[in-house]
């Protein structure tokens, strides 16, 4: 059972040992999974984008086992910062994953620089592309799905470019 935990812990490790905010963590795991990292968590689309209840519960369990901590940090509002503990690092050493592509280290480092708003947009754009929404229709779809977020055309274009550069669109019928 700790194998599932180990992959989430590895992602946190690649992000520098901590991730500020549950939304950010959710979106990073979702995007990494879509890029081919073998996470087993099931994501469903909810009001704010793809979300995994299973991942939310796993974080609670990992806290109880002492593999991670979750704490509020100064200047981060109510966002809970999820950090790897020494016990979490020991578990990671035990469940090494040599088959994992080195590309993910770079991808996670890139994503950890982004804020949760941008990651929410990236995950939603990717989800919509998989639902056969064309790039031309993307801004309208985003606005109708997320009227409160006020995403701009420039942000949506940038999200599509990011997904293209990082190889997310390979094999997708993007028009």
């Amino acid at each position: 059972m700790f194998e599932n935990y180990a992959e989430v812990l590895r992602l946190i490790d690649f992000a520098g040992g901590s991730i500020a905010g549950r939304k950010k963590l959710q979106k990073m795991v979702f995007l990494a999974q879509q890029r081919g990292w073998p996470f087993t968590e099931v994501f469903r689309y909810h009001l704010y984008g793809p979300f995994s209840e299973q991942l939310a519960i796993e974080i609670e369990e990992m806290k109880a086992f002492g593999f991670v901590t979750e704490e509020k940090q100064a200047g981060q509002g109510s966002a809970l910062c999820c950090s790897l503990t020494q016990q979490g690092r020991s578990l990671l050493e035990k469940y090494a994953n040599p088959a994992l592509s080195p590309m993910f280290k770079h991808l996670i480092a890139e994503m950890s620089q982004l804020d949760s708003r941008t990651l929410e947009l990236l995950a939603t754009v990717f989800f919509l592309l998989k639902c056969h929404v064309s790039t031309d229709e993307m801004l309208d779809s985003i606005k109708s799905l997320k009227p409160d977020r006020d995403y701009t055309e420039a942000e949506v274009d940038k999200a599509i470019s990011f997904l293209r550069e990082e190889g997310f669109l390979e094999g997708l019928p993007v028009s």
């Binding site: 059972m1 905010g21 984008g49 519960i57 369990e61 109510s78």
Partner: peptide, 24 residues
Amino acid sequence: FLDTPSTVPYSYYTVVEEEEDERP
């Protein structure tokens, strides 16, 4: 065998704990 709630396909309702928490 070890078992914890995250392996169960059902869940019960929980409320948000942070502003950006997005659970439905």
